[in-house]
Every structure is written in structure tokens, then in C-alpha cells.
Amino acid sequence: MFTKKSKSRKASSETPSTTPVLAMKNVNKTYQVGKNAIPVLKNINLTIMPGEFLIILGPSGSGKSTLLDHILGLEQPTSGEVWMCGTKITGLSQNKIAKLRYQHFGIIFQRPDWVNSINVLNNVQLPLAIHNVNKKVRRERAWEKLKEVEMTDHAQYPPNQLSGGQQQKVALARSMVNDPEVFIADEPTGNLDSVSALKVMEIFKELNQERHKTMIMVTHNIEYVRYGSRTIYIRDGMIVEGASSMLLNK
């Protein structure tokens, strides 16, 4: 999928550091609905090291997405600590977390969202534009990433006119544009047909194995377990110990 040029990325990303890209310590999340307290995450302890391909598996309503929101710093835990690439993000302001997120993470949502008034190329540039990257540089980088996902032919299209698979490829290009160490994908194949889903998973595999990027992917599809280097299983807001090896043996 990637061009030869794109395979040789910066040296730093090829030598994984020993600092966890993510660490969660005794994280609990409880939502208050009226007088009822509903626990969604229960005592989560999780460390993700650079270069891992972590699959977060679990049924609907198990707390996968809430866990991901905590990893991204979009949600603050009721108790416990979350560390993002060596920085404790619990209690940090949203603006500071947003900056860290931009520096370290590339995000792929289940349903790609777009700024519909601008074309594909400008949408791919969006994270860079938000962080004041020079117009020429961001344009070049956006084009480069579109080339890597073979979507340059659609650069001038409005994003919502693309098929689901094409949109997910563009979303991938957008997540790569800031050259992150970690890719976080929330059910990235959820809305795709099997062929498109396979293509997306192959790209993830290449990113992990050839560029040594850390991948964190939330899914409820057991088939994708084979892509990961580690799988955790979430049920009722808890990581179920031993479930991953059981799944792998299936």
C-alpha cells in the first residue's frame, strides 16, 4: 500500500523508546444519571509500550469507547491516573491535552467526520492548519499522505462524496499527517465492506510492522485479533484477565 519513499520515515520512530505511550493506573469512571451512579470503567490498569499493536476487544456497551476516550484525554477519570507519552494528563486543561494529542496521536474514528465545506486535500491538512503549520509545508505533507493511501486522484473532491472505504483511507491519511507515534482507531472497519476493511487493516499492519508505529484499535470483531501483538478484552468496564489468550487459541 505505501510507496517506497514513504517506507523510510524518520529514524527516531524506528527505535522504540522505553517510555510507555500510555499508562492507566487504577482508572475508574462513573457517570451520574440522576441519583444513580453508573460505573463504566472499573479499576483499569493498562500500559502500552511503543511498537505494540493493541487490540481492545469487547461487546457493545462494555466500555471500549469510554476507555478510548480516556486514552485520548477526551474524558477525565473519576479516579486514577492517565499518562500520555510520559506526561500525566489527569487534571490537565483540555487545551494542553489537545496539544499533546496532536504531538503524539493520530486518530481514526469509526465514522470519519469532515469539514464538509473544504476538499479532501484541505481536510487532510486540517490538524496541521489547526497547529499553525506553514501553508506550503502542510500542503506538501497532506499530498504525500494522500499518495501513500493512493487517494491523490480524489484530492479535490468534497470528502462526503467518497465511498466509505475511500473516506476511511483519507481519514487514515489525515491521521498520519502530523507524523504521530501512536495511532488510535475506534472501530475503523465498522462501516466498511469486507474488502475495504481488509485494505484498512493491511495499512495498519504495515504502519506497525514497517514503521514501528504503536497501534491501538478498538473493535468488536474477533477476526482482527490476528493483526495485534496484544489483545485485551473488556467486559462490564473491566479488563478480563486471560481472555485474550483464550481468544487467540480459538
Binding site: 477526551l74 483540555q94 487545551n95 489537545a98 496532536y102 486518530i107 469532515w114 486540517l126 490538524p127 497547529h131
Partner: peptide
């Protein structure tokens, strides 16, 4: 609204 959420997820601040 979703566009705004997206931009914020990508690091747009309240000032932005």
C-alpha cells in the same frame, strides 16, 4: 457541531 468536535479532537482550542 460534529465539525467543531472534530477540530477540537485534533487540538483546536476554545480560542480557535
Amino acid at each position: 457541531t460534529r465539525e467543531i468536535g472534530l477540530m477540537k479532537a485534533f487540538g483546536a482550542t476554545s480560542t480557535d
